[in-house]
């Protein structure tokens, strides 16, 4: 036997081989073309054979904003801190939709792709990652729409202004992506064997929206209970954005850092669990 070649194995498959985060990222990088193609596939396939096509990206937030304006703004008379209602709701919805889509669509990665995963190996994390990126494209289109509304309201009412916390914007989006992805892949890993959690996800995300300052400003929450709402990492992400973008909202550095830390932590935990599950989920799914 050629003993000096013994160590040069390209690939070793056994039960214990646990990859480090760095190795995982490296393997994803070598499949970056696949990542790009998945994003393209999801984006193109989403609105194939529809008349309005990508216009649906805009119709969704507009219809939701109208509904919120009627129900929460006019019927329930919830304050919007002096901001035009349409703008206030649309800001929240645009942000929340991105987060919710990330969780909802990544949380069934294993279940939806078992046919594919059962036949060929590639780093499984590519799939949820591609979902997050696809949603990012959708988010940027919707953000563009939001910007148009912002300009319109700015020219007619001038009741609000930009503050320099807007510089946090890229970080806020990143934190949101990590949070959505992290939670999504944790849930998808846990549901491979026991499906119970998947029942919780859809309406859980919906309920979580009411625990985040989307339809109401954080300022109307009684001080006593404020910390409970702030425990939700999405709260300060949204509030900081509102603070920068429309000049209302609460900017609290401590809670913002808390949100960042939680997001990054959940992401790493998610990647670890996901990576453990991906090796043999096909036997139990």
């Amino acid at each position: 036997m050629v003993s000096n070649e013994e160590e040069n194995w390209t690939l070793i498959i056994n039960k214990k081989s646990n990859k480090s985060i760095l190795q995982i990222l490296k393997s994803i990088f070598s499949y970056k073309d696949l990542l790009f193609l998945f994003v393209k596939r999801d984006f193109i396939a989403q609105y194939k054979q529809t008349l309005l096509g990508p216009l649906w990206f805009f119709i969704q937030p507009i219809l939701t904003t109208i509904t919120f304006t009627i129900i929460f703004g006019n019927l329930a008379n919830i304050s919007t801190d002096g901001i035009p209602q349409v703008l206030f709701y649309m800001t929240g919805i645009t942000f929340w939709n991105y987060f919710a889509d990330c969780i909802n669509k990544t949380s069934n990665t294993f279940l939806l792709n078992q046919g594919l995963f059962g036949k060929v190996y590639f780093p499984r994390l590519i799939v949820p990652l591609s979902i997050v990126i696809t949603n990012l494209l959708k988010f940027s289109l919707q953000f563009f729409l939001l910007l148009l509304f912002w300009i319109y309201y700015f020219t007619i009412s001038q009741g609000f202004f930009i503050q320099n916390t807007i510089l946090f914007f890229p970080l806020l989006v990143l934190a949101m992506a990590l949070l959505g992805l992290g939670l999504g892949i944790i849930i998808s890993s846990l549901t491979t064997k026991y499906r119970d959690l998947s029942f919780l996800v859809t309406f859980g995300v919906q309920l979580l929206m009411y625990a985040s300052p989307i339809v109401y400003p954080l300022s109307i929450v009684p001080i006593k209970y404020k910390w409970i709402v702030l425990l939700n990492p999405m709260t300060s992400i949204i509030e900081t954005f509102k603070h920068g973008f429309i000049g209302v909202g609460v900017f609290e550095p401590f809670w913002l850092i808390y949100s960042f830390v939680v997001s990054v932590l959940l992401f790493f935990i998610g990647v670890k669990i996901f990576n453990k599950v991906e090796k043999s989920f096909i036997d139990t799914v």
Binding site: W9, I12, I13, N14, K15, G118, V120, K279, S280
Partner: peptide, 14 residues
């Protein structure tokens, strides 16, 4: 093909 991993033992590939 790494679709699933062995319960025990090792596969080495070059």
């Amino acid at each position: 093909s790494q679709v699933t991993s062995p319960t025990s033992g090792t596969i080495k590939i070059k």
